[in-house]
């Protein structure tokens, strides 16, 4: 393995902390040569040495220090459950940082984040990165989950200026989904309307576009997708987009992960 500084590595799990019945935070030892990352980028993890599951799994970077790379893992299938069961000291292969388009730095009155599922990870990375860069903009986090314990509120308490939470079962915060809560808070006033950043499942992002699209000047979203190569080569993770009035397919892994929500062809992307 000579010649090139290859962006894939064999590394070890430094810590694996269970955060809730379905979520854990894994910190990987940062390998030598792992480049600095920007919010919206991800790592691709080979969770098994055998071929089930076959593909590497992409996870948004939740934080990056000189020694560690952390990611939020939600157990949703066989890949994530194998990963969540790994212990400190175990070796895994990771590639990264991957993803071509970052969250822009904010200006003005403030930014609204909406996070669901593992989408919380990149949003935390974004807030922390801006703090480290002394960007003094107010950050409003809207976080939704099924239950109180899935809100994982210990994870990000100090990272945002304001936190609004919603649970489906009503065990904490607003009872209902996070998009409804955002609508209500916008109606009340006090929510900056310049910039919305969302990161989460497609259904959540779609609901945001449908119901709050007109309330924000710009809505950028970091999308999730099943990925093959994670490098823009295989064209497996594409979403339909519209550019200069033309229908095109854009890869989430390289031409995202962050997209202007207006560029996505929501009619086409069912």
């Amino acid at each position: 393995m000579s010649l090139m500084n290859r962006p894939y590595f064999r590394t070890r799990i430094a810590e694996n902390t269970r955060l809730s019945p379905s979520a854990c935070k894994i910190v990987f030892e940062r390998p030598e040569g792992f480049a600095d990352a920007f919010p919206g980028q991800f790592i691709s993890i080979r969770v098994s040495e055998v071929t089930v599951p076959l593909l590497r799994r992409p996870f948004g970077i939740m934080d990056l220090s000189s020694t560690g790379i952390s990611a939020l893992i939600k157990v949703i299938g066989p890949g994530s459950s194998i990963l969540a069961a790994k212990r400190a000291g175990e070796e895994v292969e990771i590639a990264g940082p991957l993803g071509g388009v970052p969250f822009d730095r904010p200006g003005g009155e403030g930014v609204v984040f909406v996070a669901g599922g593992t989408g919380l990870g990149p949003v935390i990375f974004c807030a922390r990165s801006w703090k480290r860069e002394n960007i003094s903009c107010k950050t409003h986090l809207f976080i939704g989950a099924q239950t109180k314990e899935e809100l994982l509120d210990g994870l990000y308490r100090d990272d945002f200026s304001f936190i609004y939470s919603a649970t489906i079962d009503g065990s904490a915060g607003y009872k209902g989904n996070i998009v409804e809560l955002l609508e209500k808070e916008i109606d009340k006033g006090g929510i900056p309307s310049e910039l919305l950043y969302s990161c989460g499942p497609k259904a959540m992002v779609r609901a945001l576009v449908d119901r709050t699209g007109s309330k924000f000047k710009n809505h950028y979203t970091s999308l999730e997708s099943v990925m093959g190569c994670s490098l823009g080569a295989c064209r497996g993770c594409t979403v339909p987009a519209i550019e200069d009035g033309k229908k095109v397919m854009r890869s989430v892994c390289l031409e995202g992960t962050v997209f202007n929500s207006e560029a996505i062809d929501w009619e086409e992307w069912k």
């Binding site: 076959l54 593909l55 990925m227 093959g228 229908k247």
Partner: peptide, 17 residues
């Protein structure tokens, strides 16, 4: 432009594209 919709689906030791 290629096909619309889902393009990849993992199977046991395989990949549908």
């Amino acid at each position: 432009a290629g096909n619309p919709g889902v393009r990849l689906q993992e199977t046991p030791s395989g990949l549908l594209n």
